[in-house]
Amino acid sequence: MEGFWDFASHYWWLLFVFGGPIGAAVTGIAKHLRKASERRAELKLERYRIQQQYKHGKAIEAADAETSRQAFVAATQRLMDTHDEVNRRWLAYELDAVRLLEYPLMTDMREEVTVAFHRARRLADSLRPEEAAHVTDRETQREYRDAVTAYASAFDVAEAEAKRVRQGGFSTDERARIATALKLLRLALDDAASPEERQSAYQRVRREIDGLIVLPTGATDAVEERITRELPRA
């Protein structure tokens, strides 16, 4: 240090000679450092902006995917609702023996439209998911949609034909037997009649339609349950 101060005391005038260039150099270095610092700050802000844009984009994608998924599930649920509605329309026949005797074509498997309807019903039932959310791909949804559409259409055709024909496919004697069976069935379902009358009437119904019309198990169970409830206990 003594050597430095000794040199400075003898050559202080060099500051006037080199002071300007040195100052300019120092200023230039400082300016460069400041710009470098500003650039680093700008790059940091740019990286932050990009990160935020990426996060925002991902959030939008997630929201869009969720909305799309919700719409997909909702569409599947609408198919299941349509399926349920057609099932309810069919149950109005399947559980109503009177209605089936009025429109026997709905269970007459000799008729092409009836066979087509029941085939479509079985296919739709086999493809039905337990819950709408269980369907995860469009191919499965499309297959189920086609089955439900075919089921609804086949039911419409069968029902329209059944109402058009009624008992027209039977001979005069067969239609007379069906008419008798209808009267007896209404007696069997009449709560005002005695249990014995109702049971006897129902047994006669079975004899009248034997070989003409096959009632589904659901329909016969519903009639028998109503009659059994009224039978006196032993």
Rank of each mutant, 00 (worst) to 15 (best):
A120I: 14
A179C: 06
L127F: 09
K58V: 09
S68T: 14
V86G: 05
A147V: 15
F170Y: 15
Y144Q: 02
G168R: 04
A120N: 08
I178D: 01
P129C: 03
R186L: 00
R119T: 15
R145C: 13
R145S: 14
L91N: 02
R128G: 03
V165Q: 04
L123W: 08
K55T: 12
T114S: 14
T172Y: 11
Y103F: 09
M109I: 15
H56Y: 15
D64M: 09
R175C: 08
A152F: 06
A181C: 13
A179L: 04
N87D: 15
T114A: 09
L182T: 10
T107V: 05
S153C: 06
R177G: 04
K58A: 13
E102R: 01
H118P: 00
Q141G: 07
V148C: 05
L79H: 06
V86D: 07
V73L: 03
V113G: 02
Y151T: 12
H118L: 09
L91H: 06
T140V: 07
Y151M: 08
A75E: 11
A124H: 03
V148Q: 13
S171H: 06
D156M: 04
D64C: 10
A176Q: 11
R164I: 01
S68D: 07
Q167C: 09
G57H: 09
Y103E: 05
D84Q: 13
R110N: 13
L100G: 00
